[in-house]
Write a protein that binds this DNA or RNA. Structure first.
Lengths: 240, 240, 240, 240
DNA sequence: TATGAATGAGTGTTCATTCAT
DNA sequence: TATGAATGAACACTCATTCAT
């Protein structure tokens, strides 16, 4: 179980670790500057989109000289890649907490709550994330840019997690169906959560409820086959 | 009824009609050239992404001189806008056929089939569409480019259509809930259809079925309330 | 004989023909602009050295916008490569005239005159050539720049020519010695001619004479072994 | 005699003495650091060319911080200038040993051996020297960099030495011819020695022999006039 | 003092748009 | 009118040099 969960988690973090930095900053000043630059990049992306996140725009936003950016990053894409990595790290932490060790004893609704709620909060908190990394666009070109590649890896690792989870919930479910269900849930979740974050405050709660209801409705027939489980003596039926 | 459908349809087409063309070509010669350019733009976008759709790339793909492009379009964005318009036109035709005059007598499943199937086919046929226009990213900046604006308008008009449809299916449904349901369906549909088009052939059918099942499950409680009333006693057909 | 001469001649011209141009200019205007740019590059190099031949400096010198340079050349190095090609073409013409079809009947002094004189004139006329292409620096790095590569190829093809010539003069001369002699003559010639072109006018003639005397002295023992040739009936000893 | 030799020797060393060092390091510690930096610069130049010898590359190669470089040198050119000075010092030592006190009693061949051999060895040992300082390119611009200026001075001082030497060998030789001969010998020597150092091992000895033979042949008529006097009648010496 | 971060002018390159032919 | 050249503003990236720690 731990292993199953560990693999995809690692997949997130190992993304592009190699050349993400031109040189790892050795003075605390540099560490701070790197964070500043990533924050600046996120701000620019959030406000003006990824195409506006030029080296200069990022530098200006970070109140830094353009050259400083290249002290730590080999090129502009590396900044975005590092930003993605930072998101990936936080994502991993969220996943680690969200995906329960033993999901068998948990009602589907609660399970979904546990996963969806922190993701919703994450989307709310990171406009740049939803703007760049919560997109559907797929690979069609060899000149893939780092952010696009990372976006795919982030998504895939989330699908992996769901895949494993669904498998442990219903081992009878054929692998193909399981993976497809995972893909759909990830896709729908990403899509609705991104939209929800931009919705007026009044719609946020209902949108989240609707998403959950949709996922429950979709997953129920796939995962709850073994409804009458023997080890539950007392009633306490989580779901009627 | 016709009106209800016409309004959002018009919304799609009237988008940017004013300056989209520098000079509306009346001769079929020019018309053909425009179509060629739009085809070329779509091809380039499909293969290399929107950033690669430079004026020169489009012209080369269309086997035309760069200058000719500006004979018909005031600027590069106008090309993309025109492409979006062309998609919008086809979309409108699809909607016109898909959204039935009298949806009352139609089972929800059939209704969804009617709308989703042609859209799925449309996504399959237009890789450039899903690559650029089937994205979530929303407006956040004044310097927004035409394609982004149009993408939003396309989406909104689809939501409008669904909104109207849902309203005619269940007039009791509060406007706010209705619109939200429409938004969710549009968002989910777009997301899954775009992904489906890039999926391996074997997955295409199941993905479509899953999407439909998901939508039915989500809409059933919202739209089928009135149907159940007369035959309430016996059957309880809601979910076999 | 014709073949032997043709091979190295071709070697000069085939240098980098492929991507020297981003796009071959199709209007006569463009042709002129290309020539202008090459002239400008040559001027800048002649006056300020190759490091000063920046894209901007060349453009300014050619009274052109910086961007125009990239209309015809894929990058800055390609300009220098094209310049080298132009030199190579002229060189080839010079060689074609200088290297006689049948050198057997010609005194060594005359042979050398025929080769050295036009080269001296060429060096005089092309300061940029001697500044960049008449240098010794050899390969030591993979990131070879086009001009350096071309410089080597130009030199090598000249050595090839001499090699062939020496071989036809004295077939008994071992290939290794022949090639070495060719290398030395080319190297010495290049070195002295470049220096001569920068010398005060009064020194130009004596420097040329000295170079020739040096070459004659060096080559005499290698090439004139078969001194008593039967087909020369009358005395008319060109060189005692 | 000592004076004659001393003047050009001094000329080599006095070059740029003033500002070459920002602060002349008195502690052996600093001295060592300076030597390390110069070694590093030479290495980088030898391996990747002078353009690659950036302040950072040199510092990294010297396992030093970039800032330390500026502790000892006012700017990057000063590093190269100091390197040139170091070469000049070694050169001067070589010259001091090579240029005999009384060359009158020495055969021309031995004289040339004495000068050429250590220079050949020096070229072999110092790839950076031949890469940067053994070039023909002459001054033509005020913005000339220190290395170029120094390269010229090194060469000139060698010419001076030869000039003096030739004068002492044949006082009758007109100053103009003498200086020209010195120039030619220096130029040819530099050119061939640089090439020889990059030649395959098997060619090194023959190339050196050829160079010597060439120089002997060239200088014989100019310097050995007084020796030939007694046997003038018969032989018809090649060029009196 | 030694280290490595900060700075910004400069260079190569792209590309939308205009213009001459 | 169609073609492709001309233009210049923008952007990515480098590197000598200065500065804070």
């Amino acid at each position: 179980m731990t292993d199953e969960a560990a693999t995809p988690a690692a997949a997130i973090t190992d993304v592009e670790t190699d050349d993400a930095f031109r040189r790892r900053p050795r003075q605390s000043r540099g560490q701070k500057r790197v964070e500043l630059l990533l924050d600046a990049a996120a701000d620019v992306i959030a406000e003006h989109g990824i195409d506006a996140a030029t080296a200069e725009a990022i530098a200006i936003r970070a109140r830094t000289a353009k050259g400083s950016l290249y002290q730590f990053f080999p090129n502009r894409d590396a900044v975005l890649a590092a930003l993605a990595l930072r998101y990936a790290d936080e994502m991993r932490a969220i996943h680690e907490r969200a995906f329960p060790m033993d999901p068998h004893g948990m009602a589907l609704e609660r399970l979904i709550d546990r996963i969806v709620n922190p993701l919703a909060e994450f989307h709310d908190r990171n406009p740049a994330f939803r703007r760049v990394f919560a997109t559907i666009e797929g690979p069609a070109d060899d000149t893939r840019s780092a952010p696009v590649r990372l976006r795919g890896q982030l998504f895939d690792s989330f699908v992996d997690r769901l895949d494993v989870l669904f498998g442990s919930r219903n081992p009878k479910l054929p692998a193909r169906d399981r993976r497809r269900a995972a893909l759909i849930c990830a896709s729908v979740g990403q899509s609705i959560l991104a939209r929800r974050s931009r919705a007026p405050a009044a719609d946020k709660k209902p949108l989240l409820d609707d998403l959950k209801r949709m996922l429950v409705g979709f997953l129920q027939p796939l995962l709850n086959v073994q409804q009458a489980r023997p080890r539950r003596t007392a009633t306490k039926r989580v779901k009627p």
